[in-house]
Write a protein that binds this DNA or RNA. Structure first.
Length: 662
RNA sequence: GCCCACCUAGCUCAGUCGGUAGAGCGCGUCCUUGGUAAGGACGAGGUCACCAGUUCAAUCCUGGUGGUGGGCUCCA
């Protein structure tokens, strides 16, 4: 067996260690396990690379160590507070505390941060110690750290127990921890506490509520500043801010989490819908219009009443409310969690639901007459408005709302057609994401969730079909375990925006379940009844959410084909108002979305205002232009000089067309 | 839903250690007719989110309700 040595010992045998070396990275080991600090024994002959301060992986050590220092500071300032978990995260770190009868305020954070700086300034080493399970349990029991003890006791046999200590002699702070850590508190150069929030012990609702303090840490003040600047940049692009500034949409507390699209926003919204319609025409979809409210019998058939009830709005008439007897029974049945069949049947018969998805309506529509295999695949599209009750804490601007519309469609097809439908959908998606300037697209295959319908065999079949279709078009994908819908697995298309954030847009889901529930049939070429497969799919997903994502992606500057107004006419003097109005009317007659500023502001002010509203094109109209039936065109800082009105119109008509893949 | 914070004019925000409030932008009227990122004057505009409580007095303190924001996946 190879001799064990710490990296520090190995490195020191060759000379003094560069103080920028915070740890090592083992070669040939994957993931976090490859990161080892300087004091954890490794095989003396194991190959490794140095992990230096500036490297991305070093952040893990810096942040995890920062979390320890923070917990130390918290326990100094607030004795009796218990520690739980404190990992590093993508953007920083956090530590969850159980503070006796209290929470942390912003002032507390400032104090904690100050104490952290004091601890860092002591430049005391992080010390790793192996410890037996029994000793660890005894030590942390004595310290009153019940959460740590609970955690230790459920760790499997054979787990190596270690503790890390830091701080000046006599005042050392100790945590049960597997590391890795930086060598010394002095290695922490730039820390900042950012937020406080509540959370549950081990993330489970129902467990004790803990206080989580978030912070971030970087190898240098400069890197921290850069990060904070990036946060500012994201803030500046925030769609809620842009939506207000550009008068695109707003919210009102009479309809929480439900957007009102203002005229400018509605123009963009409808352009998006029309763009998708144009795609539908080319890709062979049929659009339908379907009801908003249905008898719950349809949602019983679809499974929504059992599986999706908590997210659904229910609709009753006054007459129904007046019948106290029935109402009582409805209430009793509605809150029943046991899945009692009689209660479900009662609900289905006596109540109505506002649709949260279009699929039940489409399944019903499919079944309205005898279908032939010759009609398949039938691609049934619907821009129907959906309502879903989302819990108060999760709604977010346009990105997570309670009423929205998807560019939704259901493809009814034969099993043999599934693969080609998915391949064709993939082509459509690539065209669309290209049109919006999203370059980085990732696909995830979401598999069976705990709460689901159908047998394991059906799920095997459905998951297999998706994977096979993707492989056939040569697309790579990741598996997203347990994230599927209750009726079937799905592919999720995730795109990266202009500042590197990832968003899920499109999705396609295989559903063998709903066609069976609705007893959907088509007649095959032998005259025999067959059950079709249903594919649920969306390209942009929720239009509201897409609006938000895209608005942030473009930082409010819409391309000509989507902009609420493609051009704004600015007059130099009111002597040219008549010509300006005439030009506006002409542009509009050419189908160009045109704004006009006839106010008494000076030109400089008009330009400033117009740029604030981010019109793609500005056209200055003075005496010269009026005389020559021209527009002095400008885009951004680029001035094109006076161009004939018709020429400007030609240009805008051309640039205003839907983008199409050649 | 849970934890924390916030809610003052259309917008962005001051302010009142308890005595019913201000600015800038925007809006209106007027003056100015100005050529590529803010011309000027005057004016209107507020149940300080809502409901209770404490108080001689509440926008301010306390409690509740509603809304908004940040979290609630990363596991010693």
């Amino acid at each position: 067996m190879a001799e064990k040595k710490t990296p520090r010992e190995i490195l020191e045998s060759k000379g003094p260690i560069d103080k920028d070396v915070l740890g090592i990275k083992l070669r040939g080991v994957k993931g976090d396990a490859a990161l080892v600090d300087l004091q954890t024994p490794i095989d003396a002959d194991a190959p490794f690379d140095l992990l230096r301060r500036g490297q991305k992986e070093a952040l893990e050590l810096i942040r995890h160590s920062s979390a320890h220092v923070m917990a130390d500071a918290v326990q100094r300032l607030f004795p009796g507070t218990k520690v739980t978990f404190g990992p590093s995260t993508e953007n920083g770190f956090y530590y969850d505390f159980d503070r006796k009868g209290g929470t942390f305020t912003d002032e507390d954070l400032a104090k904690i941060e100050a104490t952290m700086r004091e601890i860092i300034a002591t430049k005391s080493p992080f010390v790793r110690e192996a410890i037996s399970r029994e000793d660890a349990v005894a030590l942390f029991t004595k310290m009153g750290e019940t959460y740590k003890v609970e955690w230790m006791q459920q760790l499997p046999e054979g787990t190596e127990f270690t503790v890390y200590k830091h701080g000046p002699e006599g005042h050392q702070w100790v945590d049960f921890c597997k590391g890795p850590h930086v060598a010394n508190t002095g290695d922490l150069a730039a820390i900042k506490l950012t937020a406080v929030s509540g959370t549950y012990w081990r993330g489970q609702e129902g467990n004790p509520v803990l206080q989580r303090i978030y912070g971030t840490a970087f190898p240098s003040e400069k890197a921290l500043d850069a990060y904070l600047k990036q946060v500012e940049e994201a803030k500046a692009r925030d769609h809620r801010k842009l939506g207000k500034e550009l008068e695109l949409f707003e919210f009102d507390e009479n309809a929480p989490a439900s957007p009102f699209f203002l005229p400018r926003g509605a123009k963009v919204y409808h352009r998006l819908v029309d763009y998708v319609r144009d795609l539908y025409f080319r890709y062979g979809y049929d659009e339908v219009v379907t009801p908003q409210i249905y008898s719950n019998e349809i949602f019983q058939t679809s499974g929504h009443l059992s599986n999706y009830r908590e997210s659904m709005y229910m609709a009753l008439t006054v007459e129904e409310f007046e019948d106290a007897d029935v109402l009582g029974k409805i209430r009793e049945s509605m809150v029943d969690q046991t899945g009692d069949k009689e209660k479900l049947a009662f609900l289905a018969k006596h109540t109505r639901g506002v649709k949260a998805m279009n699929c039940p309506g489409h399944a019903q529509l499919f079944s309205h007459r005898k279908r032939s295999y010759r009609e398949l695949p039938w691609r049934c599209a619907d821009f129907g408005r959906l309502h879903r009750y989302e819990r108060g804490g999760v709604v977010h601007g346009l990105a997570r709302v309670r009423t929205f519309c998807q560019d939704d469609a259901h493809i009814f097809c034969t099993m043999a057609q599934v693969e080609s439908e998915i391949a064709s959908f993939n082509t459509l998606l690539e065209e669309v994401y290209g049109a919006f300037g999203f370059k980085d697209v990732n696909i995830k295959l979401a598999t069976r969730p705990d709460k689901r319908m159908g047998s394991d065999a059906q799920w095997d079949e459905a998951e297999g079909a998706l994977a096979k279709a993707l492989q056939s078009v040569g697309r790579e994908f990741e598996i997203s375990e347990g994230e599927g819908a209750f009726y079937g697995p799905k592919l999720e298309y995730h795109v990266k925006d202009a500042i590197g954030r990832s968003w899920q847009l499109g999705t396609i889901q295989v559903d063998f379940q709903m066609p069976r529930s609705f007893e959907l049939k088509y007649v095959d070429e032998h005259g025999k009844d067959q059950t079709p497969v249903m594919l649920h799919r969306a390209v942009l997903g929720s239009l509201e959410r897409f609006f938000a994502v895209y608005l942030e992606h473009i930082a409010g500057s819409f391309p000509v084909w989507l902009a609420p107004e493609q051009i704004c006419l600015l007059t130099v003097t009111d002597k040219v108002d008549d010509y300006a109005r005439e030009a506006e009317a002409y542009l509009r007659s050419r189908g160009i979305r045109t704004a006009i500023d006839l106010s008494s502001d000076k030109l400089g002010a008009k330009i400033r205002n117009a740029r604030g509203l981010r019109y793609p094109y500005l056209a200055v109209i003075g005496a010269k232009e009026a005389e020559g039936r021209a527009l002095a065109l400008r885009r951004g800082n680029e001035e094109f000089g006076a161009l004939a009105l018709e020429a400007v119109a030609d240009r805008l008509v051309e640039e205003g067309k839907f983008p199409r893949k050649a």
